[in-house]
């Protein structure tokens, strides 16, 4: 996909704090767009899903935690918020509501994918 189209779409997307994040990328909008594209395909989401299916809460926590870190760096506020809720739920090995919260994460991720990359 052409990065210029992606950049245009990102600028209009309400799930990203675009101005701040561009600064973080030292004005390199192309890199930013590439990174976000890579992030949507991050294996971490798959690992998170598997871990939740296997009820391996600590693995789920680690995966969610890493994704949360990246999402905040990328200024993906909506996704970041959803991941925050999941991380807190998983902290300390608990996670009764983890599946529900993961659905919300998936939701935000799909929203990002559909708006920006399709």
């Amino acid at each position: 996909m052409d990065t210029t189209i992606m950049i245009e779409r990102l600028k209009e997307f309400d799930g990203i704090d675009y101005a701040v994040v561009v600064e973080r990328f030292c004005g390199d909008e192309e890199l930013l767009a590439t990174c976000i594209e890579q992030f949507t395909e991050d294996t971490g989401f798959g690992e998170l899903e598997n871990a939740l299916e296997n009820k391996d809460m600590s693995a789920a926590f680690e995966a969610a935690h890493t994704l949360k870190g990246v999402s905040t760096n990328l200024g993906l506020t909506k996704l970041y918020c959803a991941l925050c809720a999941l991380v807190e739920e998983l902290r300390g090995g608990k996670g009764e509501n983890a599946d529900k919260l993961f659905l919300s994460v998936k939701d935000k991720l799909n929203e990002l994918k559909s708006i920006v990359f399709q």
Binding site: F25, C26, L31, C35, D42, G44, T66, V70, N73
Partner: peptide
């Protein structure tokens, strides 16, 4: 960093 994106960002920030 285990996350490629994070690494890229940091490298970008430090590149100059």
């Amino acid at each position: 960093d285990d996350n490629f994106i994070n690494r890229q960002m940091l490298c970008k920030i430090l590149a100059d």
